[in-house]
């Protein structure tokens, strides 16, 4: 396959940045999207040019490091991570536009690499449980209903890739925040801090300059882990409950 790539190039955080067009030839349909970028980069290095910087780590769809907007869709046309997207999802001769996640909270470091530290700070604000000391409790000491455990687990599969923010027309990080609030809120271990957690995490979310959620649902549609949209409603429920009881003060 021969592909024309339009890639966002930006030398550093203060550079203005621009789209640059590259031809990538002899692309195998079995290559992953990142492997195709590797091929381009090897060529750029040989030609003495700066390779295109992009984030990646496990390349198995479980770490959440990779992620770019491909033809206007976070992680591209398949509902998966960019590393698990293959070139067979495109056709020979396609022109593909590649852009970094666009959000004030995710400033571009270089080319396609953004700083997602805002997510870490949201987790630091309340995405944890108080650590009990002593020996590990018996596995059956605090029973969890199957449905609750499943839901907690579904929410816990969030890998923090940031596609929800990238896809949101408001650049809101609500799905990410809601996934963690739901994960911990469904389990007995998460109860002591439950009311304070939701308020602190949402406050941090807003402080990081993410936009507000308007329930459009693009986040859940592009989420490679299928975090359900209703986690946001669960967060809202917890938040309204917490604010009205005043427990968060």
């Amino acid at each position: 396959m021969n592909i024309t790539l339009r890639v966002w190039r930006q030398k550093g955080p203060d550079d203005k940045g621009r789209m640059v067009t590259y031809k990538v030839e002899d692309v195998s349909p079995d290559m992953s999207f990142l492997e195709m970028l590797d091929v381009l980069n090897e060529r750029l290095i040989l030609e003495g040019e700066e390779p295109v910087a992009f984030d990646h780590d496990c390349r198995e769809g479980i770490c959440g490091a990779c992620g770019v907007v491909i033809d206007g869709e976070a992680h591209g046309p398949e509902t998966t991570t960019t590393c698990q997207l293959h070139m067979r999802s495109f056709s020979d001769g396609d022109t593909i536009t590649v852009e970094p996640w666009r959000a004030k909270a995710f400033p571009v470091i270089k080319d396609l690499v953004v700083d997602r530290g805002a997510f870490d700070r949201i987790i630091q604000a309340g995405g944890y449980i108080s650590a009990p000391t002593g020996t590990a409790p018996d596995a059956h000491a605090s029973p969890v209903p199957k449905a609750d455990a499943d839901r907690a687990f579904d929410a816990a599969t969030c890998i923090g890739c940031g596609a929800c923010v990238a896809a949101c027309p408001n650049a809101s990080g609500m799905l990410f925040t809601a996934a963690k609030v739901t994960h911990l809120g469904m389990l007995p271990q998460g109860q002591p801090e439950r009311e304070a957690r939701v308020v602190q995490m949402v406050n941090q979310h807003d402080e990081e300059d993410f936009g507000g959620c308007t329930n459009i649902g693009e986040c859940a549609a592009v989420c490679p882990k299928g975090i359900p949209l209703d986690t946001i409603s669960q967060l809202n429920r917890d938040l309204l409950g917490s604010l009205s009881s005043g427990a968060a003060e």
Binding site: E99, R102, K104
Partner: peptide, 9 residues
């Protein structure tokens, strides 16, 4: 404010 640079596509 949350998306100062817009997407091209």
């Amino acid at each position: 404010r949350a998306r100062p640079v817009r997407y091209q596509v």
